[in-house]
Nucleic acid binder design. Structure first.
Length: 472
RNA sequence: GCCCCCGUCGUCUAGCCAGGUUAGGACACCGCCCUUUCAAGGCGGCGGCAUGGGUUCAAGUCCCGUCGGGGGCGCCA
């Protein structure tokens, strides 16, 4: 039974790297008929917060990475970790360490080496010294006694990874304040939660041998590991705040649609090997395979994400765009009206989606269809509100008013014959019409706009333009 | 510094595991076409196997070195 987990630490926003890790775990679970478990690693009381936990869940929901179990909070399982740490001490596989941070820092400095490892001072404490420390009430941590040898594992992505144990220091399992370190809690929980595959970022490669050693010391079978290449910024450094916004929810705010985000993340380090730009969630699950994940670090490319977003947007049916678009309509102050004319707004969405890069842009475009009190754009007037524009529009109003209905084909036919009659190019009528209807220099094909607005509204908007625009 | 990992157009990638194609696609950029505008779309251009050696009839693909890049080296996760 495949069981994977996503185990974020609620010390910050869910960033794109974390989101990709969650996505790959989710895809792996869905692909293999397994379970996707959510666990919140909040053992760092100083830096963890409720709000961040909540926000991370929100982000996962937005991405539609629904979890099957959890969230489990590590902060509620502290007793468990303490018990395991003591068990290892009793079995001689770990030991109490009374050294303070300051003492360790001092010895590290004295050695002059960055790669200084804990010197095992407390492993060799005499019974007297130990008793004295206890009497003094010195706080003690629990350190793992790293055994000699070599630790190897077969990574699903990287292949065989091998580390000599003397490269590994006696790492802390339990802090002196009684909280477990990451190594302890992650191993205990992954074992107890029966996690079969640990899929995580490559920044954990060096942690893996430590954790395997821990599994063995506890008499447990380690899971399989897969380390995903790290997402890099343009400067090829690990992606961080310095590279601009990296929180996934920030992309949501910018009007990125979740399917675009998903496809973008899925195709960093992974490719189904087909000549296609994006897939539905179902298609991704169908195609996903961990052994098609590349080993090298990809660079986060905003241009590509923006392009994907515009392509996904224009491919999606209006009713699927609607739920994600709605908050942006509200922000434009047209939420209620849009809701009331939902079916009609769907038609407008289908009209504007092709040329919207994001939901922000889409919402502001839709506003011009819903409300006729827009301002006429200066660049549009400058370019197309010229001599003859007003007269053409006036005559166009007349022929449109005489028709009993106004669909795109008739609107076009009538306009073209009027242009011919007036001896001008169709553009001389089309551009002023665009200004009258939407007040902008660019728009979807204008006769489609005419059809969607309907005859009455078209006449009203032309009248407004004739009334308000300068005489030229 | 030490340890681990990686290296195909500027970027994301296919091809590598099971050597044999003019090294394919996409983003970005530049032209042209389409066209009522802007997109989209179509056609074309630009541009890459980091490097040296080895194995082989044949190396992007297998092996080694070099160089370059990344990560780790916390009582953070």
């Amino acid at each position: 039974m495949v069981r994977v987990r996503f185990a974020p630490s609620p010390t910050g926003h869910l960033h794109v790297g974390g989101a990709r890790t969650a996505l790959f775990n989710w895809l792996f679970a869905r692909k293999n008929g397994g379970k996707f478990v959510l666990r919140i690693e909040d053992t760092d009381v100083e830096r963890s917060s409720q709000e961040m936990s909540f926000e991370i869940l929100q982000a996962l929901r937005w991405l539609r990475l629904e979890w099957d179990e959890g969230p489990t909070y590590q902060s509620r399982r502290l007793r468990l970790y303490r018990r395991m740490a003591e068990r290892l001490v009793e079995e001689g596989k770990a030991y109490h360490c009374y050294c303070t941070r300051e003492e360790i820092e001092e010895r590290r400095r004295a050695s002059g080496k960055k790669a200084w490892k804990y010197d095992r001072r407390c492993l060799h404490l005499s019974p007297e010294e130990k008793e004295r420390f206890e009497r003094e009430g010195r706080p003690k941590a629990v350190r793992f006694l790293v055994p000699p040898g070599v630790t190897e594992f077969e990574d699903l992505i990287l292949g065989r990874v091998s580390v000599k144990n003397d490269e590994i220091e006696d790492f802390v399992l339990l802090k002196s304040d009684g909280y477990p370190t990451y190594h302890l809690s992650v191993v205990v929980d992954d074992h107890l939660m029966k996690i079969s595959h640990v899929i995580r970022g490559a920044d954990h490669i060096a942690n893996t041998p430590k954790q395997i050693l821990l599994y063995r010391a506890l008499g447990w079978e380690p899971p399989r590991f897969a380390h995903l290449p790290l997402i890099l910024g343009k400067d090829r450094k690990k992606l961080s705040k310095r590279h601009g916004e990296t929180s996934v929810l920030a992309f949501k705010e910018k009007g990125i649609v979740s399917l675009a985000m998903i496809n973008f993340l899925a195709q960093l380090s992974w490719s189904p090997g087909e000549d296609r730009d994006f897939y539905t969630m179902e298609e991704l699950v169908e195609r996903f395979s961990i052994d098609r994940v590349r080993k090298s670090n990809p660079v986060f490319d905003l241009d590509k994400l923006a392009w994907l977003n515009s392509r996904v947007l224009s491919s999606l049916p209006a009713e699927e765009i609607w739920p994600e678009l709605f908050p942006f309509l509200e922000r434009e102050g047209i939420g209620e009206e849009a809701e009331a004319r939902k079916e009609w707004v769907f038609r407008v969405i289908d009209l504007v989606k092709e040329r919207s890069r994001d939901l922000l842009e889409m919402a502001s475009k839709i506003k011009r269809y819903l409300r006729s009190d827009f301002e006429y754009a200066g660049d549009a007037l400058k370019k197309h509100w010229k001599e003859g524009a007003r007269e053409g529009l006036r005559r166009l109003r007349q022929v449109y008013a005489d028709l009993d209905s106004l669909d795109a084909a008739r609107a076009e036919a009538v306009l073209r014959s009027l242009a011919e009659e007036m001896g001008v190019k169709a553009g001389k009528l089309i551009h002023p019409l665009r200004i009258a209807l939407l007040g902008e220099r660019v728009s979807p094909p204008i006769f489609d706009v005419v059809e969607v607005l309907g005859k009455d509204e078209v006449i009203r908007r032309i009248d407004r333009a004739l009334r308000e625009l300068p005489d030229v």
